[in-house]
């Protein structure tokens, strides 16, 4: 194995890592707010990817152009999920909390399968394609674009959480629901907003992934599992830390796949999850 291949893998790991981070940020945000894991997060991503795909297939709109609309649609989906399902199970048993979103995941996945079939679809001739070469290293332009845009979206999310009043209110609600309510924050609205933003994250990520990744009903499953690992690594509820965690997951995936065996790359990532939650349950960086 040459240093070139290693470097090539590291770069692709980091590029994917930023996209993983954005997906995980949405999950982490929701968990931080109300300690609920959205098991349908991957299916939200899948819907976003299908949204991007159909925009291209029916009206030849590039995923990058339809991105704002897809993101908005996912925001609405998140808010509706909160209003229609999550609100009713907040005080319920753990079992209901897990299976409500699990049921939603199965529902959405099967609905996509029912409507669109199980075929793998790929967007042909997107705006960005091809690759650039940097001293013998090749970087796919779609991957680079997706990665940069994901990073920008992550930065936007960070700015929103840290610098805007609504973002601060969101964080306050995450820290202490009752105290936030006493300070005059409408926690109900914050929860709905959290679900909207959390889902909007996969709206962005899905549009970006659709440029270079196959779109099919099961596509969300793998990304969701990776997102759980990322969230655990960053610390459940710690949104900024998911950025680094995402990069670590991306690196472990490619390097594990390369150094051990490609077939085991996800198994290695899952092993990482087990190690993290057992040895350092608060994640690598603790709470923010």
């Amino acid at each position: 194995m040459t240093a070139e291949i290693l470097l090539q893998s590291v770069i692709s790991g980091i590029l994917m890592g930023f996209v993983y981070a954005l997906i995980a940020a949405g999950l982490s945000l929701i968990f931080g707010l109300m300690e609920i894991v959205n098991f349908a997060h991957g299916e939200f991503l899948m819907l976003a990817m299908f949204g991007a795909f159909w925009g291209w297939a029916l009206w030849s709109v590039d995923p990058l152009l339809s991105l704002p609309l897809t993101t908005l649609a996912l925001f609405v989906l998140g808010v509706l999920t909160y209003k229609g399902i999550i609100r009713w199970i907040l005080g319920g048993p753990m079992l209901a909390q897990i299976f409500a979103t699990f049921g939603l995941a199965i529902f959405l996945r099967s609905a996509a399968q029912f409507l669109f079939g199980v075929d793998f679809r790929l967007i042909q001739n997107p705006w960005v394609q091809g690759r650039i070469s940097l001293g013998g290293l090749f970087i796919g332009l779609p991957q680079l674009t997706a990665s940069a845009a994901a990073l920008a979206a992550f930065a936007g999310l960070y700015w929103f959480l840290r610098r805007t009043e609504t973002g601060l209110a969101l964080q306050a609600t995450a820290q202490d629901r009752q105290a936030a309510a006493l300070m005059g924050i409408n926690t109900e609205r914050m929860f709905a907003l959290g679900w909207g933003i959390g889902s909007a994250c996969v709206g962005v990520a899905g549009s970006l992934l659709a440029i270079f990744f196959y779109v099919f009903p099961d596509v969300g499953a793998t990304f969701a599992l990776l997102a759980y690992v990322t969230v655990a690594l960053g610390g459940f509820g710690n949104v900024p830390a998911t950025l680094l965690a995402g990069v670590i997951v991306g690196l472990v995936e490619v390097l594990g796949g390369m150094l051990i065996a490609p077939a085991f790359k996800y198994a290695i990532v899952f092993l990482l999850y087990l190690l993290v939650v057992l040895i350092r349950p608060q994640g690598l960086f603790g709470k923010f």
Partner: peptide
């Protein structure tokens, strides 16, 4: 077509809520 899973999923959400 996964119609059975579609109904399962819907039922499970309904039951949970």
């Amino acid at each position: 077509k996964a119609l059975d899973l579609l109904i399962y999923g819907g039922l499970i959400v309904l039951i949970s809520v």
